[in-house]
Amino acid sequence: MITYPSINRNAKIGVTAPSSGVPSELHHLLNQSALRLTERGYNVSFGDTAWTQEKVRAASAEVRAAEFMKMMNDDSIEMIIPPWGGELLLEILEFIDFDKMNCKWVLGYSDTSALLLSITLTTGIATAHGTNFIDLRGEYWDNTTAMWEKVLTAKQGEIITQTSSEKYQEKWNHEQATPCVFHLTEDTEWKTISNKSEKIHGRLLGGCIDIIHHLPGTAFGDVTAFQETYLGNEPILWYFENCELTTTGLRRSLIQMKLAGWFEQCSGIMFGRSAADTAVNGYGAEAVYKELSEELRIPVIYDIDCGHKPPQMTLINGAYAEVEVEEGKGTVKQYFK
């Protein structure tokens, strides 16, 4: 059975960097996010790693893991939100004691998704794929991003419904942030490989495919054991987002997952919008999705609100979900059961 954490409206939020920290010239971003959350009644507790960055790491793997575990086991901290992602989160997994981990929300995306998925697969504790700390610094949150509060304050047994965004951000412009941080200019359209309406249900699992495709074959990526132990062999509804992989790299990663058995009990796959979907010799992302759909004989939905083209929904690893796409609009209903 999946265990669902929950937070209160005045929760203390721990900010630690399991991957990349924030260099000194960008410390104002941390302060801005802390101010916004404090104004909303939250308390913010920073770890040392949030403020440091040397080349591609906030600190050594051992230091990052130790600070994360300290926050996970600090009863005063109700949830953890890393500043952002990074490059080498995988380094810390061998230093995380999954058997001595309290039940609390961890929220983030990008490189952080490897930690999220590892926690859920290893412990059965639900984790939250969604906004990171830096992106909460705006004067207000767009409707899609803002759902993180409603989702993470839900209790076991509750049902949370989210709908697709109206508009999304095509390109980042860090020099000219808007009042909600993002530049939401493009019309959102959820698509299906079948070009028809789709309804899919299953247990959600996923993350940034660039990083989580390294988990199959490790102690942190045993999907078969997770299904048997925590799901009673219920089907999995996967969601992925591609940050930097070429379309051929995406295809290779999906083949690796398939050969590792990740898709053996799969009801469908969803893909987030991606800036990396440049065709290789005419081989584009839609061709990758179509081949996967035909091979696995499952529906594939793409361009959902997930990943590096914000805004993004808060998707809960381990939650039972019903997803419906019709006429370009999407609905995700998550059951905390």
Rank of each mutant, 00 (worst) to 15 (best):
T178Q: 14
P179E: 15
C180N: 05
H183T: 06
H183F: 13
H183V: 05
L184I: 06
T188A: 11
T188N: 14
W190C: 13
K191C: 15
T192Y: 07
T192D: 08
I193V: 15
N195L: 12
S197G: 12
E198S: 01
K199R: 13
K199N: 14
K199I: 13
H201P: 02
H201R: 11
G202R: 00
G202K: 06
R203L: 09
R203G: 10
R203D: 12
G206Y: 04
G206V: 05
G207Y: 01
I209F: 12
D210L: 05
I212W: 06
P216V: 07
G217Q: 14
T218W: 10
A219M: 13
A219C: 11
G221T: 02
V223W: 00
T224F: 07
A225M: 12
A225W: 08
F226D: 03
Q227M: 06
E228T: 03
Y230H: 03
N233Y: 02
E234D: 08
E234P: 04
P235E: 02
I236Y: 02
W238L: 00
E241R: 01
N242R: 07
N242W: 01
N242G: 08
C243T: 13
C243G: 11
C243L: 05
E244M: 11
L245E: 03
T246E: 14
T246I: 09
T248V: 15
G249K: 01
L254Q: 01
L254T: 05
I255D: 15
I255K: 11
M257H: 06
L259G: 09
A260I: 10
G261E: 09
W262Y: 05
F263N: 07
C266Q: 01
S267Y: 00
G268A: 05
I269H: 01
M270Y: 00
M270N: 08
G272N: 03
S274I: 08
S274R: 11
A275R: 12
A276H: 09
A276F: 10
D277L: 13
A279D: 15
A279R: 14
A279S: 13
A279T: 08
A279E: 07
V280C: 08
Y283V: 13
G284D: 14
A285V: 09
A285P: 04
E286P: 10
A287N: 12
A287L: 07
V288M: 10
Y289P: 05
S293A: 12
E294K: 05
E295S: 09
I298H: 05
I298G: 03
P299H: 06
V300K: 00
I301D: 04
Y302S: 07
D303H: 10
I304M: 03
D305Y: 05
C306I: 10
G307I: 01
H308E: 05
K309H: 07
K309R: 15
